[in-house]
């Protein structure tokens, strides 16, 4: 028992001290399930520039170290603008996750503002939706496995399982980009979560409500077979920046590091 506690403390310290592991993700041409051009119904591939992404979602231990270093993000101090009351609700104390939360499990119950502040604290930012979707298209051997019905079913099976009372530790099998836990562990914030507004269906055509949207109006999902990804968009687009949920975490990205000339 004693040694277990010592181990927990030791691992907590190590995580707090160690720099997060970022993996270089090469750029590429990518067709999102969301139209990127001016037409809301026509797909248009875009070029993504290279970036570096955290190999794993941010953990409970890492977020605890962050709120200790930046107490303004503790749940007893955070302004209501930045987080609703459920923020870090499962934690034992204001700066202490407590023994019930595994230090290596992904942090959840965090708002967009808090996630963004965390990433900024390590010189990073939240990924854009496109960056996240690009990485999420990979299975463990192919960078774009979206055409594979069996793989799509495998992702969907995660959503069919009742959510675990305890989230497992981060660090599942990496995908072809070397990124872990993109599917099957938690939902993740993206920087432009408030860019993902979608037209529910074609009944909005000609609706005066369309005036609410400038430009091409609300957008449509191009590839409706990508249910798992569509569910992500539906969830993210329903959130406000101060919202938190027990299955929503995040990871960060950094600009691609140029190799020295």
């Amino acid at each position: 028992m004693k040694s277990l506690a010592a181990f927990a403390i030791a691992s907590l310290c190590c995580v707090a001290a160690a720099a997060a592991d970022y993996v270089e993700v090469p750029g590429g041409r990518f067709e999102s399930v969301l139209p990127q051009g001016s037409s809301p119904t026509v797909s248009s591939p875009v070029n993504l520039t290279a970036f570096a992404m955290r190999a794993k979602p941010v953990t409970v231990a890492e977020f605890a170290a962050f709120v200790r270093a930046h107490p303004e993000w503790q749940r007893d101090r955070i302004p209501a603008l930045f987080a609703e009351k459920r923020y870090l609700l499962s934690w034992a104390g204001d700066a202490d996750p407590g023994p019930k939360l595994a230090p290596q499990s992904p942090v959840t119950d965090v708002s967009w503002f808090a996630a963004k502040a965390y990433c900024e604290s390590e010189g990073a930012r939240l990924p854009t939706w496109l960056e996240w979707e690009y990485v999420a298209a990979a299975d463990d051997s192919r960078r774009d496995a979206r055409g594979d019905a069996a793989w799509r079913r495998q992702i969907l099976s995660w959503y069919e399982r009742p959510s675990d009372a305890q989230l497992r530790a981060v660090g599942g099998k990496p995908n072809a980009f070397g990124i872990s836990d993109v599917h099957g562990l938690v939902w993740e914030w993206v920087d432009d979560f408030n860019a993902l507004f979608i037209a529910g269906d074609s009944r909005t055509q000609g609706d005066p409500d369309l005036l609410k949207f400038c430009g091409a109006g609300a957008i449509n999902i191009i590839d409706r077979d990508s249910y798992a990804v569509v569910m992500r968009i539906a969830l993210l687009s329903s959130l406000n920046a101060a919202d938190t949920t027990s299955s929503l975490g995040f990871r960060c990205v950094r600009p691609h590091e140029e190799s020295p000339q």
């Binding site: 051009g37 001016s38 248009s44 920087d191 860019a195 507004f197 609410k212 949207f213 400038c214 920046a241």
Partner: peptide
């Protein structure tokens, strides 16, 4: 960019930049 995103988030305004440089956005 980050400040624009934060202000939009605080005001519950949605916006996205399209590949042609135009923006979709809610008008509130």
């Amino acid at each position: 960019e980050s400040t624009s995103r934060k202000i939009a988030a605080a005001l519950n305004i949605q916006y996205r930049r399209l590949s042609d440089g135009e923006f979709n956005h809610s008008t509130i």
